[in-house]
Amino acid sequence: MEIKTITSANIPVFFNNLVKSGKVVVAPVLKKSGKVFFESVQSYDQVSTDYIQTAFSAKSVVFPEVEELFSYTKKEDGDFEFRNDMSNVPETVIWGLRPCDSSAFNYLTDFFLKENPDTYFKLRKERTTLISVSCAKADAACFCTSVGLNPGNVTGSDILLTAMGDSYYVEISTEKGKSVIDTALFTDSTEKSKEEFLAKVETKFSMDEIRERIQTAYDSAEWKHESMGCLGCGACAFSCPTCTCFDIQDEGSQESGKRLRCWDACGFGQFTRHASGHNPKSNQTARRRQRLMHKFKYSVENFGIVSCVGCGRCIRVCPAHLNIFENILNVTKA
């Protein structure tokens, strides 16, 4: 870990230099709808700095909504030509993601690379640099501190920036981070602590208690009541930085076409339906339970990580306003 400092006035310079270096820079942008989304930008003027959290996470940089796995064309001799050209995946910087989101990248990496590494994710991840910005503000949906994270954690980031008045506290955690630092703009830090510049995020539950009680939560009678409002859309899963379910689709004809990997969601009724018509998760209660148990129990068993980072997106986006931490508290009630 290297600690440096940069003046606030130099932040746009640093940013615009990243763009000039030829990298694709993805950053939060305020849209007409009033929501903030990650988007590829050309200059720092376009970047939104006054937002609590983006509507969607930045996972689409490494796990796009639609990933073309390969395409094919029938040749004259009747044989097929397959193409899978990933060489043009650009070097990308994600700017302004929150500490919870950068932590989410650790989970994504485990999920896609631990067993049977996924070549698409691997390549995209290798070409991605994460420059996060600590949270100075939080809202009622934020609960990073309940899942072992905090508004200033460096987990997952290559560089973490924390605004401290007229300068930024810069924590560089990786070689990749070092390689994008423009030495002329940064000086060695004399600051002591960034704590006072971080948002205060109240703890909604204690993970120690949950960890124990979630073991038997599957049978809780509360699931039905807690899931009553769930309408079975994909909004929570698609906005979530750690939801990774996908569906493989073929589009095209016998002559030519492509195979695509598309986002899918465990909340959809179709998700677990077998070809026979049988559906082991036949109702929304079972599907909602799956999503929460996956975050708090199954991913701990499989990867040793709680895969909810407490970003609160699913709470803000849910048309029925389901609240994941209230749900978790209620199904683990003693």
Partner: peptide, 10 residues
Amino acid sequence: CIKCYACRAV
């Protein structure tokens, strides 16, 4: 549109 089908669900 990301085809979350929330518009359909509500």
